[in-house]
Structures are given as C-alpha cells and as structure tokens.
Design a protein around this nucleic acid. Structure first.
Length: 910
RNA sequence: GGGUGAUUAGCUCAGCGGUAGAGCACUUCGUUUACACCGAAGGGGUCGGGAGUUCGAUCCUCUCAUCACCCA
C-alpha cells in the first residue's frame, strides 16, 4: 500500500470500476423479494455548475442510496437534468451575441431551437460529470432530460388532462412581467428588493371648477390649525410613468379630508382625461397624501381597486416597458392628449418617469417630492424591476387541486422532516394563488393548444388530434411555452415512464424520500405533490427530507457577486471527495444552516489519512491472511471488548441513518474509529500479536481484520472511495464493497458487559497513569514501578492479565502489591482502587503535594454540592429514586477518593 | 407589518430536564511495531439578559435584546 492515500488518482479509478461493473443500476444487489427504495434526484439545470448546495444535497442522497443498496433493497436513484427554460435561453442568446451571430429573432424559432439543442449536446450537463466526481451512485443509464421525447409527451398529456378537467384555463390577467426577458413569470420568481426612491406628489385639478377646504396641519387634539381653499387634489405616487394610464383616484371612505369629494372627478394631467374619485380602503390615510392614483393596468393593488370600483384598465406600455401611446386606441379614446404627452411615446419607463416629473414641474402641478424607501419587485433571473402587465396567460387553478396535497401531509402519508417545514408548506398552500404557467419564451414545452380563426381553443397532445377536434378550420398553435417548473413538477411520474404502465412505475412509485433544500419547497415540492395527486391520484414520495442551506463560514449565503463562493470541486481536488462528503455529513444536523469552514474539511482529510494508515498497519501485520473469526469464538477480553464496541457502533450508525441524523452517524463513526479502534485497540493489539505464531496473535489479527471490515462497511455510505479501496486492498470481501452486505450486529449477541467493564477499567488505569506522569513531569521515556495499595480481586486479576499492556502503554516497569506507601510516590485512583507510582529520585514532592491538594479541593467542592442536594428533603422525596441513589453513590466514591488522597498528602507531609 | 429559526469554549457547531461535548485553534511533553495530515497530557464556558414552572433548567414557559431567513 502506498504510504499516502492519493485521492485524485484512486477516486476516478474506483468510480470507473463501479460504473463498468453495473453497481449503480437499478436493482443491483437486490435480494430476492427485496423492498424497493427510490430517490429522484432534484434535476440540476442543464446550464448548472456544481455548487456546495448540490454537493450537500447529493451527498445525503448518496448515503441513503448506498445504505439501502448494501441492505439488499431494490434501489433506484433516478438521475436527470432540467431544461431550465429562461436560464438556458439566456445562455444561448448570450453566446450568439458573443460570437457575433444573428440574434434569436433574426434566426427564427426553429433555427434558434436547433442552436439550443446543439449547445445542450455539446456543452450542457457539465454538472453530471461533476456529480460523478463526488461519488454519486445514480443509475446513469436511466438519466432523463425534461425535454426528452417521452418526458415531453407526458407533459403534454398532463396539460391536456388538466385542461379537460378545467384545472387549466387561459385568461387576461395582470401578471408579473419581466421586461428584460419579455415574458410573464410566476409569483415565486419575483424577489422583493428594498429601494431608496422618491414619492412624488401631483396636483390633479378637480373637474367642473370644483373647490374644497383642505385642512392644514393638525394640532395634538386632532383639530386642524386652519384650512386652505383648493381646486385640486394631491395624489402621491412612486411611479409617475404610469400616470397616463390612471383611470381614477382613490381615497379612504372615512378620511374626513376627502370624504365629501367621493363621486366627483378630477382631470388627469397631460391627457385631460376625466376620472372619478372613488372610495376604497386601499387608500391609506397615513401614507402620502391619503389620495392615491389608480392605474389598474400597471399595479396589482390598483387592479383590485379597479375591479371593486368599476374603473377601466388602460395599458400604456409595451412588453419592453416603454410607453405605447401614439397607436394605442385604448389609451387615446375618451381623452384629449397634450402634444408633449404624446411625445413620450416609445420612451423607456425610467425616462418617461423623469420627463413626466419635469412636465409636472413646468406645468405647475408638481406639489412635492419626498424621499421614500419602498420595496420593488424584481425578476429573480433578470434582476430588473417587474412590470405588472395585462396579458393573456395560462393558469393552473391551484386552489382546485391543492386539497389532496394538504391532506396528504396533514394525515402523515407524506412526512416532511424536520417537522417545522410542514408549517411552511401549509402556510403557502393554504393561501395559494393561481399559478401562471405560460412563458413568452421559445425554449420549453410549447403549449398544446391550437386556435381557430374565431379564437376557439383546441387542446390536444398533437396537431393531428387538434385538427380532428377542429374539423376544417385553420389552426394556429399557441406560441408560448410552459413554465419550467410545470415539467419539473411531473419529474416523479415522468421519469418512471408514465403514461405507459411501465414496470418502473409499478415497482418504484410512489418513491421513498425526496431530499431537497427548503428554498424550493414551494417551487417544486408542493407542486409535485399537487400534480402527482391530480394526475395519478397518488403521493409522489413518502418522506421529504429538507436540509439546510450551505453558507460560508460567517453565515452569509454564498453568491457570486459577494465572491464568497466555495467551490466544492476545488475542495475535492485539494482534500478528496471523501473528506468533503464527511465534512458535509458531520455538519448535517437537522433544521439549521450549515456554515462551511475550510478547516473542517482539512480535519476530515486527516480522518481519511488516519483510516488509510490504520489499514496499512493491518496490511503490514499480514492481517488479511487471517480468516474472519466468528465473533462468538473470540476469547481474549480485549478482542471481545472491541467487538462489543463495533456492534454498538453499527447499531447506532444504523439508527442514525434511519432517523436522518446523518451528523450523529458521521461523528459516532469518527469517534469509534479514531478514539476507540486506533488509539486503544490497535495499541493493545501490538502486545497481543508480539508472539506472531501464537493462537492469541492469530485471534487478534483476525479481530483487527474483522473490526476494520465492519468499519469499512459502516463508513462506506459516507466515504465511499477510501473504504472501497481498502476493501479491495485487504481483500475484505468477495463482492465489491458498494454491494457488500450491511452489518447486522445485534448488540445482545456481541456485547459482554462484564468484559467490557474490565477493559474500560484497564483503560482508565492507563489513563490515570499517563495523566499523573504528565502532571508531575515524569520524563516520557522513563519506565517506573506501580504499587497497588488498595485493590479488589477483579483489579488484581486485570493487573495480572494485562500487565504487558500496562507496562507498554503506561511505561510501567512492573507492579507489586503493598500496604505501605513508598516514601516518594504519586497517588492515583481508579474507582475505589488506590495506586501509587514509585518516583524516588524523579518526583518533586512539592508538585505532588500541590497536585493532591488541588484534587482534594475540587473533590471537596463537588461533595459539598452533592451533600447540599441530599440534605434537601424535597429532593430526596420528589426526585426519582434512581437519581437520588446515583448522587449517593457518586458522593460515596468522591469521599473515598478524598480520604485516600488526604492520606497520601498527610504521608508526604510527615 | 406577519411568520420561522438562532444566540453554548478563541472560531465553526453538536447536545437538550439531573448540572456541559466535538472539530479546528492554543499550552506542555514526545520520534515507542501504521499515521507529525501523528501520539500523550492539559487550559478554556455563570450555555444572550431578566422573570417564572420544577426537588433540580443550557434544555420547558413568558419577556427583552441582537442576528438571520421567509412572506407581505
């Protein structure tokens, strides 16, 4: 074996071996009549590059998959990729631009889509190669893409079914419009951004020369200081550019300033349009001037006001958020537009804003401009401000299909872990809004609806079918594509072959666990639930494991613009995939963010090295030539001790995986392997194998090998590469480790409490010797004698049986039993047994006196505290008997120790 | 404005009714049959503040403060 574990070299070799041997295939290693276990990968975007979130997400999935595969379950980890509508179209458009090629519009839809496919086939899916570097054991032979023919067919079929059931409809609605991509987006794709802006106050003339008394500032008592006669109403807005589309002004019905104006009209500046003053509670008397202009076509709140008050909606913008005035019949009707207003035609919305404020200033109707910070919706991809825009779009009537998705989680048929996320899920689904699913893009699933000349809709899975429905009419297909999340919402059934009744659907659906970050509970989890239940009447998965978001070491979200992104592949190159995986696993406590500090990865790499060296030690000692023992036949207490610990660790690891406590599993294995197996057992084994040909040496070598084998099995789901390499190197099994049998070690069978207690006592004795030596600065290389002053039969037996271990690990030359304390000695205790180390000529008696006095003082404090508790009658009567007894026992032990150490101290003083 | 979570050793985090743990960092010693990416021994915390429940609270309840995230 090489002295160092060369992760880079070995990982790629091992991965290739697994793949060529077909170990990732669905059902590999399945026992006859096996249970199935299926995970669907959250499909990464075809444009994606592996980030830490992917690394974490896929490590957890891989652990579950490998663990179940080793248990002999029929395992399927279904991989694939998402076509990622906007993201991909963006990438390809940018490339066209960079290469000086004609843009999308010049190419035309068909040619552009051809270019996207070419890009996808040449450069898409880099992330799959990156996932493989992590060691993910997906069944790559089944990889699916959301634009594959079969998947596409499934998407269209679902659309048609939901359409026919009335759950999908088309309507003219105000939607979130992204002026950069010129498409509608859903509520979820909108981010609220806090912006420092201005609130402008404009004077709208009252119609028919009306006037009113406007109260000036109020006194504390609420009485106006005075009034002012006004022929205008002041409205406040942060969006002057929408002014030309105003169709009303709203005031609060109970606002005494304006109440009497309700029902009158104002004249909209620049257009001389006569618009009514309406009463609506949306107008907040405490904000702005209390009078708010209403632009139903360009604001969600105003849209509702318009509906309530019967105001028309006038669209004054194009899809690129420029003003559309000159040829806009809707706008021009019913008003008398000033020429300077018409000149705004074609201006960008922010230019128009500037000009309108200028015109207001020039025209004398700008009343005030007040600094104001407010939130502005932005597109999550484009990062430009969203424009509420009145267009025809397709919607899913989510309220009609949300019920079963709520019920399934409420009833526990689908579990969400940790439970707190159930609340998040309920909260969103209980208040769900219609889902806008049409996108004005080209890359995606084109909506399967055709229109005839009269605008009648024919929804069908193909043109021929649509024609059959339409008779002889001329049909035109809807140009829009579906939201990417509509197709990802069908990932469960779509990847398993629906609508055909495939063996995969039969076997693996509903799937078992969905592993995902909380940020896509709404985008994806909730929609999969709704859609699977609506289409096949079944939940898509039994358990949703929601994991934390990976942040940088100071808790910031990793982002390219902040520049705090830690590249998982870079860490993998420097420390190895196993080290990264182990780190992420050991930090995967449920329900919290995960801050990744690089030194944790370095620590895990050290663990990898430790494992490698332990295996080398076994190899150097020819352990692999031993036949595996039946643990029941092992006789030496030290060997029985490590077997017991191994069984307990196996049990705990299995429990931890079963309850998704991945960090407990990782940390438990770390502690067992390093602190138990390496630090104690391997050290003990060195004495036991001293006589190479003895039965004891053989048994010990076999136990070493057995323990290493169990360790490799248990660690494999978390650290697949190094464990497989050692497995092969030491020939630990006939099959590859990835498909070896998961340990099933019943603690009742393998554990032996009496023997374990004995070895624990031995460990405590050696620990006490080492500690005393160190505190008294006994030279590390010197060997010294041990005297037992007070000892029981068991202690005596252990001393006899393991004298070599004590000698070797405690640097003890020999031991004797005596009632007389040597003159120059240090005292130590293990339980009730008292020992001293003979240190004539070495010990500084003052050091020992100080040490004993310190110990006695500390013990005294503990005793005082325990005595006080026992003296409290309420404690003695109300606390559980075993707790009281435990304290009594502890107190007794401490008192024995104080007595012994006080005796030793007195002896030294004398 | 509404909601959720957090506040534990210098740093990153576990734990969660019986009086605190890990990794890294730090101190001292050390090359003895794998490993200095190592071994041995240590130091370090009134578990954010205050109040309550309890025989007992880091853990439960209330409250305050600070931070983070989600939704308006």
């Amino acid at each position: 074996m090489e002295p160092k574990f060369d992760a880079g070299k070995i990982e790629s070799r091992i991965y290739a071996r697994w793949e060529t041997q077909g170990h990732f295939k669905a059902g590999a290693n399945a026992k006859p009549d096996a249970e199935t276990f299926c995970i669907l990968i959250p499909p990464p975007n075809v444009t994606g590059a592996l980030h830490m979130g992917h690394a974490f997400n896929n490590t957890i999935q891989d652990i579950l998959i490998r663990w179940h595969r080793m248990q002999g379950d029929d395992v399927l980890w279904q991989p694939g990729m998402d076509h990622a509508g906007i993201a991909t179209q963006m990438v390809v458009e940018r490339r066209l631009e960079e290469q000086g090629e004609p843009d999308r519009r010049e190419l035309g839809r068909e040619e552009f889509l051809r270019r996207v496919w070419t890009w996808k086939n040449q450069s898409g899916g880099e992330i799959i190669r990156q996932l493989k570097q992590l060691g993910t054991s997906c069944d790559w032979s089944r990889s699916r893409f959301t634009m594959d023919k079969g998947f596409h067919d499934a998407v269209l079929k679902v659309f048609v079914e939901l359409y026919n059931q009335g759950f999908i409809y088309r309507g003219k609605r105000l939607v979130n419009w992204d002026p950069h991509f010129e498409t509608a987006i859903s509520d979820l794709e909108v981010e609220q951004v806090e912006v420092e802006g201005t609130m402008w106050h404009f004077r709208y003339q009252l119609a028919d020369g009306a006037r009113y008394e406007h109260p000036l500032a109020e006194e504390a008592g609420g009485q106006p200081v005075g009034t002012e006669t006004r022929g205008y109403l002041v409205v406040a807005t942060t969006r002057p550019e929408t002014l030309l589309g105003d169709t009303g002004v709203a005031v609060h019905p109970e606002d005494p300033r304006y109440q009497h104006l309700i029902g009158q009209s104002v004249i909209l500046p620049l257009t001389r349009r006569r618009i009514p003053i309406v009463a609506d509670t949306h107008a907040d008397p405490t904000k702005g001037t209390g009078a708010v202009k209403i632009t139903p076509a360009h604001d969600f709140n105003d849209w509702s006001v318009g509906e309530r008050c019967g105001l028309p909606a006038i669209n004054i913008m194009t899809g690129r958020a420029t003003l559309a005035l000159r040829n806009n019949a809707e706008f021009l009707e019913g008003c008398d537009v000033l020429p300077e207003a018409l000149n705004l035609d074609g201006l960008d919305r922010y230019e128009a804003r500037k000009r309108i404020v200028e015109l207001a200033g020039e025209g004398g109707w700008l009343d005030a401009a007040v600094d104001d910070s407010h939130t502005v919706p932005h597109g999550d991809r484009s990062k430009v401000a969203i424009e509420p825009f009145l267009t025809d779009q397709w919607f899913v009537d989510t309220r009609a299909i949300v019920g079963p998705a709520l019920d399934s989680v409420r009833s526990g048929r689908t579990r969400i872990l940790p439970e707190q996320y159930e609340q998040t899920y309920f909260q969103w689904l209980e208040n769900i809004e219609p889902w806008c699913i049409s996108r004005q893009l080209w890359w995606g699933h084109q909506i399967p609806v055709w229109y005839d000349e009269d605008g009648r809709q024919y929804c069908a899975t193909g043109e021929a079918e649509a024609r059959a429905l339409a008779g002889n009419r001329i049909l035109v297909r809807d140009q829009d594509v579906l939201d990417t999340w509509f197709s990802s919402g069908l990932w469960p059934i779509g990847t398993l072959g629906w609508p055909d009744s495939t063996p995969e659907m039969e076997r693996y659906f509903p799937t078992d666990v969905l592993v995902t970050g909380f940020d896509i509970i709404f985008f994806w989890v909730a929609r999969m639930m709704m859609m699977q239940l609506a289409i096949v009447g079944e939940i898509p998965f039994h358990t949703v494991y929601v994991h934390a978001l990976v942040r940088d070491e100071h808790g910031k979200k990793m982002s390219k613009s902040i520049g705090n992104v830690v590249d998982p592949l870079e860490l993998t190159e420097r420390y190895g995939a196993d080290a990264l995986r182990f780190t992420l696993t050991s930090m995967a406590a449920m329900g919290r963010d995960l801050r990744l500090a690089e030194n944790r990865v370095a620590g895990s790499r050290n663990f990898v090295t430790k494992i490698w060296n332990a295996a080398r030690f076994l190899k150097i000692n020819d352990c692999q030539k031993e036949t595996m023992p039946d643990p029941a036949d092992v006789t030496h207490p030290i060997n029985r001790w490590i077997i017991a610990h191994t069984a307990r660790t196996a049990h705990a690891t299995n429990d931890s995986f079963a309850t998704y406590r991945f960090n407990d599993a990782a940390n438990g294995l770390y502690d067992f392997f390093w602190n138990r197996f390496c630090d104690w057992y391997i050290e003990f084994s060195k004495s036991l194998t001293a006589e190479k040909d003895s039965d004891l040496a053989g048994e010990t070598r076999a136990t070493l090998l057995w323990t290493l084998k169990q360790s490799m099995l248990l660690l494999h789901p978390v650290m697949p590469f190094i464990t497989e390499e050692i497995w092969q190197e030491l020939q630990l099994g006939t099959k590859d480790l990835i498909i070896a049998d998961w340990p099933d070690l019943d603690p009742a069978e393998y554990c032996d409490p009496a023997t374990e207690a004995e070895i624990d006592w031995l460990v405590a004795l050696i620990g006490a010797i080492r500690s005393t030596r160190s505190q008294l600065r006994v030279p590390a290389g010197s060997t010294i004698g041990l005297t037992a002053l007070r000892i029981d039969d068991r202690g005596r037996r252990i001393l006899v049986e393991h004298s070599e271990q004590i000698g070797r690990l405690g640097r003890i030359s020999g031991w004797s039993e005596s009632r007389n304390r040597p003159a120059e000695a240090a005292t130590l205790m293990v339980g009730d047994c008292e020992f001293c180390l003979e240190l004539a000529g070495v010990i500084n008696l003052d050091d020992e006196r100080a040490r004993l006095a310190g110990d006695i003082a500390a013990l005294g404090r503990e005793c005082t505290e325990m005595e006080a508790r026992l003296a409290n009658p309420r404690f003695v009567t109300r606390a559980p008997a075993e707790v009281v007894e435990k304290v009594r026992e502890q107190l007794r032990g401490k008192q024995v120790e104080i007595d012994a150490k006080s005796g030793a101290l007195a002896n030294l003083k004398g």
